[in-house]
Design a protein around this nucleic acid. Sequence first.
DNA 1: AATGAATGAGAATTCATTCAT
DNA 2: GATGAATGAATTCTCATTCAT
Lengths: 235, 235, 235, 235
Amino acid sequence: MDESADTMSADELVSPATGRPLTKRGEATRRKLLEAAEAVFADLGYHEASIVKITERAGVALGTFYLYFDSKQTIFEALVIDLNRRVRHSMSESMAQATDRIEAERLGFEGFFRFTAAHPALYRVVREAEFVSPATLRIHYERIVEGYRAGLRAAQREGDVDPALDPEVAAWALMGAGELIGMRYLLWERDADGRPPARIDDAVIDGMTRFIGNALRPHTAGTPTLMQERESDDD
Amino acid sequence: MDESADTMSADELVSPATGRPLTKRGEATRRKLLEAAEAVFADLGYHEASIVKITERAGVALGTFYLYFDSKQTIFEALVIDLNRRVRHSMSESMAQATDRIEAERLGFEGFFRFTAAHPALYRVVREAEFVSPATLRIHYERIVEGYRAGLRAAQREGDVDPALDPEVAAWALMGAGELIGMRYLLWERDADGRPPARIDDAVIDGMTRFIGNALRPHTAGTPTLMQERESDDD
Amino acid sequence: MDESADTMSADELVSPATGRPLTKRGEATRRKLLEAAEAVFADLGYHEASIVKITERAGVALGTFYLYFDSKQTIFEALVIDLNRRVRHSMSESMAQATDRIEAERLGFEGFFRFTAAHPALYRVVREAEFVSPATLRIHYERIVEGYRAGLRAAQREGDVDPALDPEVAAWALMGAGELIGMRYLLWERDADGRPPARIDDAVIDGMTRFIGNALRPHTAGTPTLMQERESDDD
Amino acid sequence: MDESADTMSADELVSPATGRPLTKRGEATRRKLLEAAEAVFADLGYHEASIVKITERAGVALGTFYLYFDSKQTIFEALVIDLNRRVRHSMSESMAQATDRIEAERLGFEGFFRFTAAHPALYRVVREAEFVSPATLRIHYERIVEGYRAGLRAAQREGDVDPALDPEVAAWALMGAGELIGMRYLLWERDADGRPPARIDDAVIDGMTRFIGNALRPHTAGTPTLMQERESDDD
DNA sequence: AATGAATGAGAATTCATTCAT
DNA sequence: GATGAATGAATTCTCATTCAT
């Protein structure tokens, strides 16, 4: 997996202290910190992690941290954005193999699962953003949904996906389904030796595929009319 | 909504300090603490919350806390378990109205959304358990999945749900879908006045209903065969 | 000198943390902290002083500090107000011995000098307030000026002090004169052994007395007309 | 006011790093640093000021600072000495206008007030020296007192000033009086718009003039005898 | 001469938990 | 049962100073 090729989007990095662009040496140190932060947050979660632990792991002095990041929260956010880029990269690489639209969606999941399996602890980092930096989590989800939605729309135009589906709603539903499946069968699962699995069990993948296929594929007849009887239910 | 009838499962409460069962007065204090904790955790999240804030809100002295709970984590766990009970109550109450199996699933979602809408900040508490007490979150999810799975199995036996679906996998997928939809359209959404909506927009509910209906309903022909060509993909 | 009788004005002390009134034990601890702070600020000045040093000197744990004071600045301010009370006490005790109005003013200085000589390092604390908490320094000066001004007014009514003097301006001038004399001849002066003097040299007291006497006493004739030629001089 | 003509006494400046005399370019950089330091110390006070802020304001790199000054304290001291020169310049320029001895003293005050009014924040810098570099503050005060004392002595010889006054003591008293009046009526005073006044109110100047005139002028008869009854008062 | 990255000691502050009353 | 004072480890962040380039 080469998604970690570059660790950070490089658009004009500047020192938060001086506001000046980084020198080459500075950029290298910044990268060391980001990599250390990734490891530490994955091991300990956001709240157990500390800046000392990050700088120790990066092999730099404590004060150096503040040359590159304003706070623990700042580096966390940078990391989430970076991880988002890498997950999407893994997903789109996977989807590129697809021969049809629905298969593409399925392969998107596989790319997602592959990333999660390769960095089991890391995906936890992303989810913790809900409690650390909600705005950043929104960005993460919205960027993924955006890809899904575009794919679903295109598939609807070509008749591969049920035209009655709302692509936005379906995209959020699919992402949620994928996350929980990933959490349940990758992060919680342990094999006989107590180790996390390298990939999701085939049976689960089959189940997931069927579920997605059902949900998305166009249906000829007898389609749902249930919602007609929805009445205004309140508490 | 009467799901808050009793705030805590009451099976033989004992003081963690003395190990003795609680007196009536003791039970009242314990309940006050739990209610205060609910409010404080909802307002501030787990890490910003503090024992002093909880005891202040409960109107008891700091030391009193440790008469009833071992630690901040303990009371948090008690709260999550309690919330789980209340969410499931809301769901099953809703499902009881259903006239058919698939509608029951849809109504389950509505019960879930209703609870979330009524206590927007509270459901955040449950999700935060992933980072505070993962074991407790598993319990929460598993209890919900259990209900789903049983429902799906029964529906499959009666031919209302696609027999090819794995009920366990489908249950996790559905729950994930529901959570993300809830988060997106209840917790993040704001109306014109910047207030969270009391309920999910009808169009979204329709979209969700279609999605679920598709995913679950039995399909006569041309069913997915895509997975046959799944090959061992690695990193 | 008994001006240190009570170390703190006692009007309803409350914990800054809980806002509740202090118990007897709490008040004792608070006093210990205040006394330690007095010593530490006097030894080291505001910026070299630290909360650890204060609590170590007080013999309490670091965290205890925050049960009684919000910050280093807060305890400093409390101390300045307290010292102000004690200086004024020393001054008014001294003035009570006077047999005439002008002598009273002179004795006021002596009371001030006596306090400064008894706590040489301490008066530095008060002056440092200019840079730490200007508002508190204003309070300090204004309280002293208030006393002066009242005394001068009364003396003017009885014909003991030049009726042409502005009592407010004269009060500030006198206070400034006293402070600098005190600084020069008490805080800077060292005797043969390098020790600060216990009192100001008589010759200086005489000089000061003459200066004050001149400045305040009514003058029969040839009084100043200098200001007539003051013209609007600007930069 | 041209007192800022040269910002630093120029007797053979050398680099503290190399010990070598400064080049022309070096002197320019040194001056930039000193001017920046003046602004930063005035804005923030000694402790809030930082070397980075000074170098940023000067538009040079952080490391450059140590080419010209040994430490933060060093540059502060250099600044105080410089300000002292400028205050005295302002005072003597003012005194040169006087037609008699006592008026000269009054005009000295006006020069002092004019400087303070023109650089309200700056005079604070000088006073802060008491806590940063007491030795430097002594130099500052002693240089001013020296001028006063000489003036008073000359005036006494010519019979313009009370011969019974101790010129040294009177000088310190006058300086203290001037400082507090300046602080009270220039630095604390705010006009209707909340802005510091450009000059001291005439009434205050009049009051001050009367005070000084009284204190210094020779008095024909009935002069103070109060001090004869001074007895050794101790604690 | 000038640069700016790196350093690390030191500061203030928080808070879960204990325990004597 | 209830109280609330005391504890102290741990955390984040600042900044004067050094030094390799």
